[in-house]
Design a protein around this nucleic acid. Sequence first.
DNA 1: CTCGTCCCCTGGGAGC
DNA 2: TGCTCCCAGGGGACGA
Length: 282
Amino acid sequence: MPELPEVETVRRGLARHLVGRTIVGVTQRRTALRLPMPLDFAARLSGRRVLAVERRAKYLLFPLEGEDVMIAHLGMSGRFHLWPPEADPTASGREMGKHVHVIFDLDDGSRLAYEDARRFGLLTLARRSDLAEHPLLRDLGLEPLAPDFTPAALARVLAGRRAPIKAALLDQRGIAGLGNIYVCEALFRAHVAPHRPAASLSSAEIAHLVAAIRAVLLEAIAAGGSSLRDYVQADGELGYFQHRFAVYDRAGARCPTPGCGGSIRRLIHQGRSSFYCPQCQH
DNA sequence: CTCGTCCCCTGGGAGC
DNA sequence: TGCTCCCAGGGGACGA
């Protein structure tokens, strides 16, 4: 589910409520998500104040008082939900459903729940000093909204790669944070077909693609992300960028480019759908 | 190395 | 209503 704009939206929502709060208790309803949680997960979190909520690619990082940093990834269906102090989650069985896996009790009486039906997400802990070399983080590539995401940097990532540009952009070791939706949308804006070999893009196309990736991510963040199926922000608000998709999940629809007249096609490679306009993406 | 395939897991929607 | 099939925003383990 969540790609960079959704994770960034969640980060902002959590930061507002969590920074400065102390975790007073942790309830684990299972011992593993995609990865096992550390055996001392609850013990290392309890009594710790949350210093910040940060993001690296699609990972959320929660530096804590002391040496530890909690690392979270939402996978496809992961959500954080905040319960204000006056709320009683036990009053309604539906609210704290069977897919709520971890509950963090905070010092103001509020609670943070991690819910993840498919369990492709993860929660773990690392030492702050080991973060850069942590196996989950060390191979991540360029942060697409950082200043070093330049046409020259993207050109280096794509050089020599025969894989389709679609696959190259999804590879988190090159650029980190894009997923299926925003790759489709960025390629559309840059007029590049998803099946083009990555190394075949011209300098002009690469420059256009860098600008398109930045723009689509910033617009999506401004819209609060895209709400598909079960994605909601921490406060339950829905993002609305899905109404602005030009191609994603719009197979058969008219291409939105003025005067194009083509229709959006869906292609499957590597088991995932690509949506594009064969008329204006080459 | 790099690339494509398959798999992890559950739920929702379409079609019958 | 209920079944079956397909599909889904993620990433990682394989084998060629």
